[in-house]
Structure formats: C-alpha cells, structure tokens
Design a protein around this nucleic acid. Structure first.
Length: 451
RNA sequence: GCGAUUGUGGUGAAGUGGUUAACACAACUGGUUGUGGUCCAGUCAUUCGUGGGUUCGAUUCCCAUCAGUCGCCCCA
C-alpha cells in the first residue's frame, strides 16, 4: 500500500492555483524592473555556516533548520531558511562590491525551508519574493525598499494593510539600549519565561517581542529605544520617516518591533494584513537594514537593506480581500471529431492551428459528439471546429463561433485565414459578411467594416 | 516542540459493531447515430487516511501513525 503523500507542511501547486502564481511572478518582474532590481538565483542549500553565524539567538537558526550531512561527505549543508544570507554571501563571493554600480539591487523568488509546525500561512517549504539592496547606506534606499514592496501589494489591490516601522539604531545606540534593558529587567528576569531568560543573555531586545510576558506589569514601563538613540541614529530614522511621508506611504511607529533575525540595525519594518482571513500569521513582508552581514562573509564594510515577502501569505490575503488573481484557461479552438475516419484529419487541423499560435485541443477519449461539445464549453473555447466524413470528402472543416453561434463551412486551406479574421476582429459583429447571407464564407467580400 | 480538532468516491457530504455505505454535484452512456448548455433514464466507493488490536464480524470501539485545520510559540 503505497500511500504516498507530500511531506508535512508542503503542497503541490497546479491548476487554477498556478495561474495565480504566474500573475504574481509577472508583477514581480514588472515592479523589480522599474525599480531597477535584477534577479539573483542562489542555491537553495548553502553551507550551514552561511545561516548559523556567531551567537545567533533566533529560533529559525537554532531550532528550525533543515541541516544534514550528505552521504559521502563531511560538510554540513542547510536548506535555506531565508534569502538574505545567501545573497550577502553571493555579493561577497562574486565581488559585487567592485564590479557593479553600487548599490547592488537584487531580487529573488523561490522556496525557503523551516521545520516548524504548519498552520495557516505557515509552511515548511514556502516561497518568498525578496529584495536586497547592498552597498550603500542612505535612508532614501530604506524608503525605496519599503516603497517597492508597498506599491507592489497596493497594485495587487490589497487594502487591509498596516506598515509598522521602528529603528534599532546603530551599534552604539543598541549597545546602550541593551544595557538599559538588562538593568531594567535585572530583578524581574527570574520571574519571566524561560525564553526571555535566554533572551536576556543573548539578545535582550527580543524580550520586547515576547508574547508570554507581554501582559506583565513590568512590560508597561520598559525603556524605549528612542531614548537611547544617538544623534546619528535619530537623524537617520527621521530621514526614513520623512521619505515615507514624501511618498505618502502611511506607517505606524511601533517601538516594540525588533524582528526575529539578529542582523538588523537601524530601520526595521513589517507590513501586516489586518484581514481576518490571515489567522495568526499576518505578516506579508518584513525586513530592515543590516550592517554587519557583508563583513561577516569576508567582504568590505557594506550596509544593506532588504525584505522578504511570503507569497503564500500574499495569496491568502488576496483571497481574504476577494481579489481574484486566477486566470481562466480559455481555449481558442476545440476540434471535434465526428467519426473514426476523421481522426487523423482532425489531428492535422489541430496541428495546423497550433502551428499558427492558436491554443487548441481535441478529444482523445473517443467520446460521443455531445460529450465533445461539453468540452468546448468547459474549455470556454472561442470556436468549435468540426470534422466528419462529409468534410473529408469535400476537403472542408466546419467552424462555429460559440459567442454568436455563427457557423461556416470553409475549405481546409482557409482555416487559418478564417481564424485570423475571427480573432483579429475587435468589433464583435464585424465578421458578419456584408453580402447579407448569414454564415457567408465566400471570402470574396471585404469583411472590414470601414470600407 | 505543546494543545485542540478533523480524515468516508473526482468533489461536497450522510451514516451504522452485521455486508446493498445515503444523498447531491461532476463525469460517462443512452433517449437525440453531425451541433453543447435544459429535461429524463442508466452507470460510477469490493470500500470509509495508514498500520495494528478487541470481536464470530470494525468504516463504526481501542491504540499507534501519517496528514489537514486552528491556537501557543515562531516567523514571510
């Protein structure tokens, strides 16, 4: 009993669903094009150290990675849990800091892997569209990145969105803040959740993220990042805010927003959907600025900004807001075969149609005429082309335009010109021949209306 | 990793410790042998996620397992 099924947290995408993906992918190409981002395709697995760096405190790195050592190897490999690290690695490895106009503006689309418990909006293999802009530190680039993502989701039609923004400041500001937090939680930490006790040591900022302790009184008067920013960090953040204002991008400053990945500095943001269809996973895209990553991979000191968008979540949000992305698979022509003898002739017609770019299909199940006609309907074919014994004798085919039920018997040689006429028309009724005879296919008359 | 809940044909979905597993949709066939959508009739689950156990007998009860869904957590 072979009961094969997809691994937990993965899914097959096909049929109508895949047309939604194509639509999204087309839009990604359009938006990245005008913002002058180019695509990068990095491996979906990397050496484990690319993701597991230093004292990374994130769950993603510590608990959720697909890490393995392949047979006949001693090198630890990890399926990428996120896109930024691989891009930063590639930026350094390919010496993009020297070869390209900086900043390098790169985007990627592809699967990411995290071993989590699946639920709505959370899969073990999921797809992200992400951008990374590396090699320049300018608040306008932070704004540009947010603008690209925001206008992208806005173009799709999403409305129940909220942009959350915060700054973590530079190293100095963050170090001061970290000390302030440690001091603040010093006496209380032993009463807090085990995760927070770990965070207290590894990365106190993330205590702010904690949901377990969120309601405790101690959380009410937590020192604010904004009080510990040095002048430079404050000025940087102000320029980001000013830029967003200038582009009319609405946002809320959320001083608890610290993000789960440890490499962020300065700007961090999260764009969430407030639609009820989202369940508890409501972040559509999120990211921020990172300063140390390029150096970590052995490159020069280079700042970057980027974000990643969960495509499955984007699709969920679209569904929730009633945005229809699926495209109907309309056929141009369905070829009906009316007798066994006509089989090969019908097949030739089919081939001729396809050679001329018409999306065509026929019946391969030897179904009755009636059943074949149902396929015409199901495929929403523009025309039905019928071929039977009579047509074989006469060298003709019968072509029926479904929209107006008009039907013509034409010579096989006229097939494509007739199709071109039908499909070339912009006016629905232009094909009706001026000679007055219904269904006229004489080909002698001029079928254009303005003559 | 923890908790809750679900799992019956292509789809939706009833149901029972006893064997013909409702009904609807879809599909196919015929009425209508070269013209679809309507109508009528017929056909379509040796099987109830998978594996064990209890039982004379399990789709039904029990256990395990896999998967879905929803929370926690985490994050896109």
């Amino acid at each position: 009993m072979n009961n094969y099924q997809v691994p937990k947290g993965t899914k097959d995408v096909f049929g109508e669903e895949i047309t939604k993906w194509h639509k999204i992918e087309d839009l990604i190409k359009q938006f990245t094009y005008v913002y002058n981002y180019t695509e990068i395709r990095t491996p979906i697995f990397e050496h484990t150290e690319v993701f597991k760096r230093g004292n990374d405190s994130s769950d993603m790195v510590n608990k959720e990675m697909y890490t393995f050592i392949p047979a006949n190897s001693s090198t630890s490999i990890t399926l990428r849990p996120e896109g930024t690290a691989g891009v930063a690695r590639s930026f350094v490895e390919n010496k993009m800091y020297g070869n390209t106009d900086l900043p390098a503006k790169l985007y990627y689309v592809g699967p990411q892997f995290r071993h989590e418990s699946p639920q709505k909006g959370r899969l073990r293999m999921f797809n992200q569209f992400g951008i990374e802009c590396i090699g320049a530190k300018n608040p306008l680039l932070d704004v540009e990145a947010i603008s690209l993502g925001y206008s992208f989701v806005a173009a799709i039609g999403l409305q129940d969105l909220k942009v959350l923004l915060n700054t973590l400041g530079d190293d100095e500001s963050r170090a001061n803040y970290r000390e302030a937090l440690k001091e603040y939680f010093k006496d209380e930490i032993s009463n807090m959740c085990p995760d927070c006790q770990r965070r207290y040591i590894q990365n106190p900022l993330r205590i702010l993220d904690c949901k377990v302790d969120a309601h405790k009184p101690i959380m009410n008067n937590v020192p604010k990042m904004s009080d510990y920013l040095n002048e430079e960090s404050k000025a940087y953040f102000k320029q980001v805010c000013d830029g967003l204002d200038a582009l009319d991008i609405p946002y809320e400053i959320d001083d608890r927003l610290v993000r789960g990945l440890d490499y962020y500095t300065h700007t961090v943001f999260e764009v969430v959907s407030e639609n009820s269809a989202m369940g508890s996973q409501c972040t559509i895209f999120a990211g921020g600025r990172y300063d140390g990553l390029v150096e970590y991979f052995g490159g020069p000191a280079c700042s970057g900004i980027g974000w990643a968008m969960g495509i499955e979540r984007l699709l969920l949000a679209c569904e929730g807001e009633g945005i229809e992305l699926a495209e109907e698979a309309n056929l141009d022509a369905y070829v009906l075969c009316l007798s066994k003898n006509a089989n090969i002739h019908a097949f030739k017609v089919l081939n001729e149609l396809r050679a001329n770019g018409y999306r065509s299909e026929t019946d391969y199940l030897d179904r009755k005429f009636k059943a074949q006609f149902k396929s015409v309907e199901r495929y929403k074919a523009t025309v039905a082309i019928m071929i039977g014994d009579k047509d074989i004798e006469n060298g003709t085919v019968t072509i029926k335009r479904i929209a107006d039920q008009k039907q013509f018997v034409i010579k096989f040689e006229e097939l494509i010109t007739t199709m071109d006429e039908i499909f070339g028309e912009t006016d629905e009724h232009a094909h009706t021949c001026n000679c007055g005879n219904e269904g006229c296919t004489c080909g002698e008359h001029d079928h254009s209306t303005n003559e």
